[in-house]
């Protein structure tokens, strides 16, 4: 058997424990899929796999038990998925064009969840469009609100939805639902002064609890949707760590630009001898220093006036 495993991996198939057997890794950006595409996955699993599927930790589907020689047929069958999910592809019928950058995962967001501050799936799909196909090892995740159900602080780029609470004083009846909710469920950023509410903007994390709990619409959401962008969290062997705050109250355009700039930075600075051409971005930043990274990341980025950039950036975590 003669197989170019590097091409196999790039084509979103796994080299498995079992000689001669691969697995198809279906990337589902934003974790949302039209249900009528499920029979495509079912058919691949039953005709070419072992009849089972695995729901991956990054919201993909992995179909095990596929023979390497069946990869072209599997790629043909994958085409409707790739078309409908808007995956950038180099040539139709050839499956996924890259697998280095991992599936962009997202919580269910404001399509369904009452806490969600934005459409996580739509933003995930927008990032997918902007960066794929790409071989570099990037992990990006989106979560709708500061509850961070998507655990984005374990990613290179964690995108956390925020709303900037708008207060209409004349609709406030001093029921204190917001003050209590903020104190008990969030960061205690509200206090009552002369029967009205004052919000501590420095403390506020934009979770929207005040809006959710307000019975009169004295609190509403900002028309603009904002984000907290956190950087270079990671799991793994040497130094697992949480991502740190980079920019609070940042906008969608700036995030896209920063991610794209980071690809250029990594291409310029990655260890040429990195095993498998893979090096976590965080380790590269550890080597070049944060200032060098920021020089690249913020190039031509026009942050909104309200954006707050953290400085300096320090990571901790475990060192083995």
């Amino acid at each position: 058997m003669d197989i170019n495993v590097k091409q196999v991996r790039k084509n979103a198939f796994r080299v498995t424990k079992t000689r001669g057997i691969t697995a198809s890794r279906i990337r589902i950006p934003g974790g949302h899929l039209d249900a009528d595409l499920l029979p495509v996955i079912q058919r691949i699993a039953q005709e070419y796999g072992d009849g089972s599927i695995h729901l991956t930790v990054r919201q993909g589907v992995e179909i095990p038990g596929i023979r390497y020689e069946d990869m072209p047929q599997v790629n043909q069958l994958l085409q409707p998925l790739i078309d409908r999910m808007g995956i950038n592809q180099e040539e139709p019928g050839t499956g996924y064009s890259s697998a280095g950058t991992r599936n962009i995962s997202a919580c269910i967001g404001n399509r369904v969840c009452p806490y969600g501050c934005y459409d996580t799936t739509a933003f995930a799909q927008r990032i997918e469009k902007a960066i794929f196909p790409h071989d570099l090892h990037f992990k990006i995740a989106l979560t709708g609100c500061p509850n961070d159900c998507a655990k984005v602080r374990l990613h290179d780029f964690g995108i956390i939805g925020m709303t900037l609470p708008q207060y209409e004083k004349d609709r406030c009846v001093d029921c204190r639902a917001c003050v209590k909710a903020c104190a008990k469920k969030s960061v205690d950023a509200l206090r009552t002064v002369n029967y009205k509410v004052e919000r501590n903007h420095e403390k506020c994390i934009g979770c929207g609890e005040c809006v959710i709990n307000c019975p009169t619409r004295a609190w509403t959401r900002s028309q603009e949707q904002y984000y907290r962008l956190v950087l270079f969290g990671r799991t793994g062997k040497r130094n697992p760590r949480l991502a740190v705050d980079f920019i609070k109250w940042v906008d969608e355009e700036s995030i896209l630009k920063i991610i794209k700039n980071t690809y250029a930075y990594v291409q310029a600075h990655i260890d040429p001898n990195a095993p498998g051409g893979k090096e976590h971005i965080g380790y590269i930043v550890d080597r070049t220093g944060v200032q060098e990274y920021l020089k690249w990341a913020l190039q031509d980025v026009n942050l909104p006036d309200c954006a707050e950039v953290s400085s300096p950036l320090y990571w901790s975590g475990l060192h083995y």
Partner: peptide, 9 residues
């Protein structure tokens, strides 16, 4: 009031 209710959008 567009987007003016409790939940996003």
């Amino acid at each position: 009031y567009p987007g003016g209710n409790t939940f996003s959008e």
